[in-house]
Simulated scan of single mutants.
Amino acid sequence: MAKRDAYFDNMKVLLIALVVVGHLIEPLSSSEAYRPLYLLIYSFHIPLFVLISGYFCKEITSSDYRIKVVGSLIVPYLIFETLYSLFDYFVIGAQALRFSYFTPYWLMWFIFSMIIWKMLLPYAVKIRWALPISFVIAILAGYAVDAEYYASISRTIVFFPFFLAGYYLDKKHIDALRTLPMKIASAAVLGAAVLVMINYGSGIRPEWFYGSLPYAALDQPYWTAGLYRIAAYGASVLIGGAVMILITGRPLPYISVLGRNTLYAYLLHGFLVKGLIATGFYETYGESAWTWLLIPFGVLLAAGLSSEWMRVRFAWLLEPNLDRLFKKQNRDGRAEARR
């Protein structure tokens, strides 16, 4: 087994904590108190998560690359898309039981898009100037009024450049930037980002960071709308880059080890968040100062769901053994049925 890199494990732990906290405070994101934090989280955490995911997809020429996509993504996607639909109907109280496998349920868009990114990657990297071309396509896609939630088409296109950039990224490029002057500059960037979100956040629509809607739906039907997406990309690169430079590469006791199980936290935390919404928690306590406890609660929830304890108990659901589903490969590359 390859030795794990504590740097990326620490990064994944931070990002999954931000995902959980972001979802917990989302119902409060329109308030003056929570809006700056919500905007700051969404300005970089999705692009950075996508970038890290692309970084770990370098073995695209391996014989079992597509098989791993099926086992680690497609099967869990079908399972949890079904579970969330059932949860939505029987627990939340949706009016109809609807299985929308081609319109991913809420947080399931990331898994759906990941499937497409991974399947597309071996072909995309054969294209000359694939990375700048993907950025141009993502900017132009916003002008298409029908590029929305179906098949997660908008987000798949918008965030694919980060996935592709992650594939091209080399760890030595990151290490070369993690110098003391760059760390000071990165801290300044984060500080400036916080001030911008506090002072000007009321005029920033978080939907620009979602990547899920066309420009017309964001009240920008003009040809200059693409500049807003470019600005969102710029913010993601600056803030996300600052986080990458500042994150430690040292193994952190009890923390770094959680980085191997972040998929568990991602897929499971949604049930609790949706449950809180269904109970009327935010309507009852939305104005209370107690809601600030959602932030440490989200961090602890992300840690708990990423623990080895959870992996032992839910591996059958998130990492099912599919050996019997596929034919075994001989040394000459031919397949034979598994017995």
Rank of each mutant, 00 (worst) to 15 (best):
I60R: 09
I60M: 09
S62W: 05
D64P: 00
D64R: 14
Y65Q: 09
R66I: 08
I67Y: 05
V69F: 00
L73A: 07
I74N: 00
I74Q: 01
P76Q: 13
I79W: 06
E81C: 05
T82H: 12
T82A: 13
L83K: 12
S85L: 01
L86T: 06
F87K: 05
F87C: 03
F87W: 13
F90Y: 15
I92W: 07
A96L: 08
A96M: 09
A96E: 15
L97T: 04
R98A: 11
F99P: 02
F102L: 14
T103D: 04
T103F: 06
P104Q: 01
P104G: 00
Y105K: 03
Y105G: 01
W106H: 09
I111S: 05
F112W: 08
F112G: 02
S113I: 00
M114Q: 12
I115C: 10
K118S: 13
M119H: 03
M119S: 10
L121E: 06
A124W: 07
V125M: 06
K126W: 08
K126L: 14
P132V: 07
I133L: 12
I139A: 08
A144R: 14
A144D: 10
D146Y: 14
D146C: 06
D146S: 13
A147R: 07
A147H: 10
E148V: 09
Y149F: 14
Y149H: 13
Y149I: 05
Y150M: 09
I153V: 15
I153K: 15
R155M: 11
R155W: 05
R155C: 00
I157D: 01
I157G: 03
I157T: 07
V158C: 02
F162E: 01
F163H: 04
A165C: 07
Y167S: 06
D170R: 15
K171Q: 13
K172N: 15
I174W: 03
D175W: 02
